[in-house]
Amino acid sequence: MVSLIPTPPLTVPPIFLGACQLATVDLGPLASFTPKKGQESALQAYLATLDLACPPPNHAQSNSTQSVLWAGAAQWFFQGPLPEKLMQFAYVSDQSDGWATLSLSGATAPNVLARLYPLDLREKVFGVGQLARAPLMHMASLLHRTKPREFTLYVFRSMAQTAWHEVKTAMIHVAARGRDGV
């Protein structure tokens, strides 16, 4: 009987540059889901029992171990251990292996992201718990602000190396400006 060894999307040590840190992060199981027609309120009721909900566009909703991330038209990502009854109310598709997740944090993280995403990332516009489906350079991506100075970046697994390289290059350029790194 065969035994297969898992490999993460990217194996690189974290980078510290200027006032910023980039690291790979494993957020565990990930699945997409779309509510079954007519089951939308039942779904919301079920999620409420877990202290969760289907958030509106550009938002995430979390409890202590799981998160629901808005991911598109009638589509959400469920992050964390998948609740058994979800499949009753929604069509679920595993995404655990399809994405690479990076964590960018630090005082100059928004300046670094300004080189990568065409988004208004001022905290009053894009605050903690908000997210966007937006391109990281030319790559389909999800950007989630998890803390005031911490962001999670999702890219396709196959593009993890390119994403790492682009973020690192932006960090280098921001760090080179010193002080505020504008």
């Binding site: 779309t34 007519g38 038209a73 009638a74 069509y91 595993d94 655990s96 399809g98 697994r157």
Partner: peptide, 23 residues
């Protein structure tokens, strides 16, 4: 598929998503 779903079949009981990367 996204376009056809949203433009012509918006009220259908349907879910589509790419899993190219997942497998």
């Amino acid at each position: 598929l996204d376009f056809v779903h949203q433009a012509y079949c918006a009220d259908w009981d349907l879910s589509t998503i790419s899993v190219t990367e997942n497998w």
